[in-house]
């Protein structure tokens, strides 16, 4: 396959950046999208040019490191997968493909397609801790948890924090990410004692990072590689409402 790539190139965070066109020749359809970029980079290096910087790690769709917007869709539009699991057979010979980094004020570009997603880490940090007793290993099923709750918590915990929800949202909102993190702990008894404080702090950290507001367009859910449901955002809204109505977080001991 021969393709034309229009790639966002940006030397450093302060560079204005711009789209540069490259030819990707002799691409094998069985290559993943990242392998295709590896081939393009090999070619660039052999010609003495700077290779395209992009994030990747596990390359098996579970780490949440790879991140690029392909033809306007975060992770490229194949449902429930990250870019590393998108294969070139989904494209046609002669296609022109536009590749851009996640675009959000909270995710500044470091170089080319690499963005700084530490805003997510700050949200996680703000969530604090869960209270767990130390001592010997507790017996199995000491804490009865209904199967449906455990399943729902697992669905939320599947979030790999890649940031595609932010990239896809027209408002660059991080609500899907935050809702997954808030929900997965709020659904389980282990996360209950700090639930109210956690949701208030995580929403505050999210707002401070400069993410937008949720306007329920559903774009985030459509591109999420772990198919996190929009229903978790409703759950986050419910948890937040309960927390501000009870207004107990202020009276709790500071961390």
């Amino acid at each position: 396959m021969n393709l034309t790539l229009k790639v966002w190139r940006q030397k450093n965070p302060n560079d204005a950046g711009g789209i540069v066109t490259y030819d990707a020749n002799d691409i094998i359809p069985d290559m993943s999208f990242l392998e295709m970029l590896d081939v393009v980079n090999e070619d660039l290096i052999s010609r003495g040019e700077e290779p395209i910087a992009f994030d990747s790690d596990c390359r098996e769709g579970i780490c949440g490191t790879c991140s690029m917007v392909i033809d306007g869709i975060a992770h490229g539009g194949q449902r429930g997968t990250t870019v590393c699991q998108l294969h070139m057979r989904h494209f046609n010979d002669g296609d022109t493909i536009t590749i851009e980094p996640w675009r959000a004020k909270a995710f500044p570009v470091i170089k080319d397609l690499v963005t700084d997603r530490s805003a997510f880490d700050r949200i996680i940090e703000s969530g604090g801790f869960v209270s767990v007793n130390t001592g010997g290993t507790p017996d199995g099923n000491t804490l009865p948890i209904p199967k449906v709750d455990a399943d729902e918590a697992m669905d939320a915990a599947a979030c790999i924090g890649c940031g595609a929800c932010v990239a896809a949202c027209k408002n660059a909102s991080a609500m899907l990410f935050v809702s997954a993190k808030v929900s997965h702990l709020a659904l389980l008894p282990q996360g209950k004692p700090e639930a109210e404080r956690r949701v208030l702090k995580m929403v505050k950290a999210m707002d401070e990072a400069g993410f937008g507001n949720c306007t329920v367009t559903g774009s985030c859910e459509a591109v999420c590689p772990k198919e996190i449901s929009l229903d978790f955002i409703a759950k986050l809204n419910r948890e937040f409402g309960k927390a501000i109505l009870k207004n107990r977080a202020e009276r709790q001991v500071a961390d």
Binding site: K6, W8, I19, V69, D71, G72, I73, G77, T98, E100, R103, A104, K105, A106, V109, A168, K170, N171, A172, S173, G210, F211, G212, N213, T215, V216, T217, G218, S219, E221, A222, V223
Partner: peptide, 23 residues
């Protein structure tokens, strides 16, 4: 706030499932 949250626009943006009404 939503406008400020994305200072650099995408060259190509496909809102996928987002309805016309929602946008």
């Amino acid at each position: 706030e939503n406008k400020a949250a994305r200072p650099v626009a995408y060259a190509e943006y496909n809102p996928t499932v987002a309805s016309y009404a929602s946008r």
